[in-house]
Amino acid sequence: MKHPPGYTFRTEALSKVYGEGEAAVHALRGVDLEIPKGEMVVLLGASGSGKSTLLNILGGLDHASGGHAWFEGIELTNLSDRELTLYRRQHVGFVFQFYNLMPSLTAEENVELVTEIAQNPMRPADALGLVGLDARKDHFPAQLSGGEQQRVAIARAIAKTPTVLFCDEPTGALDSQTGRAVLRVLKDVNERLNTTVLIVTHAAATADMADRVIKFADGMIRDVQVNSEKLTPEEINW
């Protein structure tokens, strides 16, 4: 059975090469992985270890060079660009390190950007409420602090009630206190909406609040650790 029920993602010998010949960079070298539904998973590793590449491929943002990846029984590595677009539209939420908000839209409008095209979205105000920003919904990104911007980005990502939420260094640009607040939001989303959350980070401490920690090095998985006891974001030691 290629994709056992109860798993959000499964990969088989997944590889990714950037460039050709001498300049070729092997970002992923045969990754085998299973991620159960509803878990909070942290991908750890140094810069260039391949964790972001994996996230991009699972998120439908990039194509694999070899191997297979499945999302709930759908083989992602077989999808056309159009089908990947549909996959992202219906199932995936993204949170980026640099928030990537549209500078020309207010907090609420940034969220609307996603609810506009989602099948079963929440109300933008509710999404902002979840991240504690309902009072700042009419502010433009430039008027918000880094933490607030990241929370808007999270609200934007969860507003479509995605099956899976990808977070690429969500706290990378934030101070520890703000970072904790952001992690708290991610934790809430994971628990309340039963969304599978994948967090890419090189802040090892974040791992303590995850269900599962996958360590990357040189494009390969070095270690998978399942936490029987998890810390709350507030307890994390930065």
């Binding site: 992202r88 539209r89 980026f96 990537n100 950007l113 095209i117």
Partner: peptide, 16 residues
């Protein structure tokens, strides 16, 4: 370019 990339990441089609 970058904003176009984000819109695509959210699932906006090329046509949209």
């Amino acid at each position: 370019r970058e904003q176009i990339g984000i819109l695509k990441a959210f699932g906006y089609t090329s046509l949209e």
